[in-house]
Design a protein around this nucleic acid. Sequence first.
DNA 1: CTGAAAGCGCTAACAG
DNA 2: CTGTTAGCGCTTTCAG
Lengths: 339, 339
Amino acid sequence: MPGQKITSLDVARLAGVSQSAVSRVFTPGASASKKTAEKVRKAADELGYRPNVLARAVVSGKSRIIGLVVAYLNNQFYPEALEKLTNALQERGYHVLVFMASNSAQNIDKVVEEILDFQVDGIIAASVALSSDLSDRCQAAGIPVVLFNRAQDDPGMSAVSSDNIAGGRKVADFLLAGGHKKIGYIAGWEGASTQRDREAGFLAALNKAGVALHARGVGDFSSEKSREATLEMFAADPPDAVFVANDHMAIAVMDTLRFELGLNVPNDVSVVGYDDVAVAAWPTYDLTTVRQPANRMVAETVDILLSKIEGPDVGPRRLEIDGPLIVRGSARIPEGWKT
Amino acid sequence: MPGQKITSLDVARLAGVSQSAVSRVFTPGASASKKTAEKVRKAADELGYRPNVLARAVVSGKSRIIGLVVAYLNNQFYPEALEKLTNALQERGYHVLVFMASNSAQNIDKVVEEILDFQVDGIIAASVALSSDLSDRCQAAGIPVVLFNRAQDDPGMSAVSSDNIAGGRKVADFLLAGGHKKIGYIAGWEGASTQRDREAGFLAALNKAGVALHARGVGDFSSEKSREATLEMFAADPPDAVFVANDHMAIAVMDTLRFELGLNVPNDVSVVGYDDVAVAAWPTYDLTTVRQPANRMVAETVDILLSKIEGPDVGPRRLEIDGPLIVRGSARIPEGWKT
DNA sequence: CTGAAAGCGCTAACAG
DNA sequence: CTGTTAGCGCTTTCAG
């Protein structure tokens, strides 16, 4: 039999004060005399009382819960981000309700509706796009939304990502400086803004140098698809360098090149990724890649979200944080390249 | 200005029924005539009404929230488990509130108290141990707890893990069958029951065969520590086989052996891990390892937890699910070994 | 500063 | 099956 729940009224009786006094002692912004507070605290400890945050949420309208939508956890960038986000929010007194969503629009909408049912104070959507219908409803409900690692056409939506266009450009410049002539690209899921921007920046820089893309494949952010795309790309006229839209795919590409095609990286072909996840630094891969500054991205995401929750509405903020190219051994290093 | 919240009363008025009628239509187990239900549904859709699950939780005492405590997400087994757990619970109408906890007892206690504040219906503790004080409080509050991938001495606690003792034994038998004579072990964090059991099973089987452990290091479930342990272990009299307590560490060990010590795996030394995370199957590592059956572990964890929540208390359940040894190329394969 | 009283949005008896 | 009524545990006016 579950033991009784201890309520503020129980504490009040034991402490010999009113129930509202107890409430005030446990409410951050409230006023209570030192003496009352002490009596209440003592009684509460004795009974093992803790405020019911759900009841508090109902009456105050603030749940201090943040809904986090996330699509896939297999790209290692996300667990890392999830961990950092949760920690950052926890430190600031918020808690995270996680929702997994497949990347179909209807599924995401369904998930966001569920989130809304919890009266969350805010929503972080990691790598998924909200329908404009839904984002309107969030706006109407006064619930701020910040997109993490995904931009969206809707200019009313706040979003934090790395500067994917600049990142793509950096990779192109690096490969060009390395003297590569036949440059290939393996794309991620084409519905993703990150994918589009990385490719756009990459192509723009190639273009500017008067170099055409030698080959293009689609890896869909999946290992298996990337493997297939690699095999296909190298079946005909093999490129001498490949930019892969994220590290998760780049690893699969490297494995395919080495083990299925018997090629040497970087001697036969240079490979560059994007994200700088932990694996990229492993000596086996030693992957040259663009770093997504996860710490800063998380910090900014949390700041924006909480400022919207706690302050007056400041309008949408869109941040694209610049990340450096981390030069390692998976791609030929241009003569005299300044790291 | 945030749009007004739509309450069941608004819907009731529009539909021309009582507020409790609205409630009943949206309460799974309740009775309402087809006609009423239709009117209510129509009015609700028109207004965009959705029940406030927090208010429901306050009055019904059931939040349909599960608190999930997790310590580290860098071992890839956990993101995978987290994803599966969240999905499984979502399918059954529950939602997951995530809490990150460092592995110190006091921190975990603090975290669990926070969880309790949310009136969660149940708690899943992944790879962390609860103080007996806390587990008593959960029990007293009638909140079921299931440990995931961690056993605990407290026999009153439900727990789901793989059969770590049997797993350790399988590895020993495999290495012995492979003719290895100098067998080393790299331990995980020594406070973990998984670590202890894997080692116990491993040593028991070696012992039974009359073979003494050749060397022992501690990797603490960390890449860097594992690297150091490996260097130290191979400085003196190098083993011809190493069992590493999980894949996360085993990968680091392999990298160290290959890149820092210039050894060939498996020709110079066999390596075996535990977990069978995704990386283990990558051709670069091709790691022989004991599979933790994540799907079954998750399914059982959820079943146990929900049966405790929804049914009468059935007493603690402890499950150790057997996982197969996945034979790959990182360890010498004994003559005529039947896969 | 403090207590009394109202009420958050909802579910759960209770009569009808 | 339905409406009425109570009340979940808490915050928040409002007098004092």
